Simulated scan of single mutants.
Amino acid sequence: MTVSIAGRTVVLAGATSAAGLTVAEALIAAGARVIATGRSPGRLAALTDAGAETVVADATSLTDMTALAAKFGQIDGVIPLVGGWRGGGGLAGQSDEDFDALLPALQAVRATSRAFDRALQASDAGRFAIVSSTAVARPLAGGANYAAVKAASEAWARAVSHGFAKAARDSGGPLRAASVVFRAKVLDAETLAGAIIGLWDADAATLNDRVVEL
């Protein structure tokens, strides 16, 4: 069964980047209710102006994300958008400091998926999606930290998909929630926005555990 994104409630966690704003604007234009989070009230202002409901919250914090899930109840989509790049210098240049700076992307995937798991499974079309990189398929020495964090994020998202499928099997009901990985070589915000909207154009059984190259 395919459905429309119109009328759906979508959480964009860590959405204060330019890409986050573009995605929020596209979702709102498509008829979705957007809840956008960020740690800085000032950086959330543009999202508020675009029509999103904004909440000051840390996407890497399970406590913050659990509180958000309890506050809003029905949620149909969750997209963690915490990202960033550090790299270069070959393998010797892969510093602990750079790795620590990249780690919040994985932490956001973990926190959001755990906090909203029940809500997404309760939706008749729950969607969880992460943004990854083609670097996972061909990691380079100068981007080893980055590729490792993205690979771990993909593994977690695939575990989410398994959880969705197992819950459906155990209940004897249809699969209604899907976890998807978007991979991009260079992220184009408008392309990402279109792909996110398209998550509600296919049924969960088709989408779950898919890797989609943008």
Rank of each mutant, 00 (worst) to 15 (best):
M1W: 05
T2P: 07
V3D: 01
S4W: 06
R8P: 03
R8C: 04
T9L: 01
L12E: 01
G14R: 03
S17D: 08
A18V: 07
G20E: 09
G20F: 06
G20Q: 09
L21N: 04
T22E: 13
L27K: 05
I28K: 00
I28L: 12
A30L: 01
A36L: 04
A36H: 01
G38Y: 07
S40A: 10
P41T: 11
A45S: 14
A46V: 08
A50E: 03
A52H: 02
E53T: 15
V55N: 14
V55R: 15
V56R: 03
A57I: 03
D58W: 00
D58I: 01
T60I: 07
S61Q: 11
S61W: 07
L62V: 15
T63M: 03
A69N: 12
A70P: 12
K71Y: 01
F72S: 10
Q74D: 14
V78F: 06
V78T: 08
L81C: 08
L81K: 01
G83Q: 02
G84K: 08
G84F: 08
G84D: 03
R86F: 04
R86W: 04
G89P: 05
G90T: 09
G90E: 11
L91E: 11
A92R: 11
Q94E: 14
A101K: 05
A101F: 11
A101R: 03
Q107M: 13
R110N: 15
A111H: 06
T112W: 10
T112H: 11
A115Y: 10
R118F: 13
L120W: 03
L120K: 04
S123L: 09
S123G: 11
D124Q: 13
R127A: 10
F128S: 00
S132W: 08
A135Y: 11
A141V: 12
G142P: 03
G142T: 05
A144G: 14
Y146R: 02
V149E: 00
V149K: 01
A151L: 06
A152Q: 05
A159S: 15
A159T: 07
S161I: 07
G163Y: 11
G163P: 02
F164E: 07
A168Y: 06
D170N: 14
S171C: 07
G172N: 02
G173S: 12
G173F: 02
P174C: 01
R176Y: 03
A178T: 04
V180Q: 00
A184L: 06
A184E: 06
A184T: 13
K185Y: 07
V186F: 10
L187S: 11
L187E: 13
A189S: 15
L192A: 12
A193L: 05
G194H: 03
G198T: 04
L199C: 06
L199N: 01
L199R: 03
W200F: 15
A202G: 05
A202W: 02
D203K: 02
T206R: 09
L207K: 02
D209N: 15
D209V: 03
R210M: 06
E213M: 08
E213I: 14
E213P: 00
E213A: 14
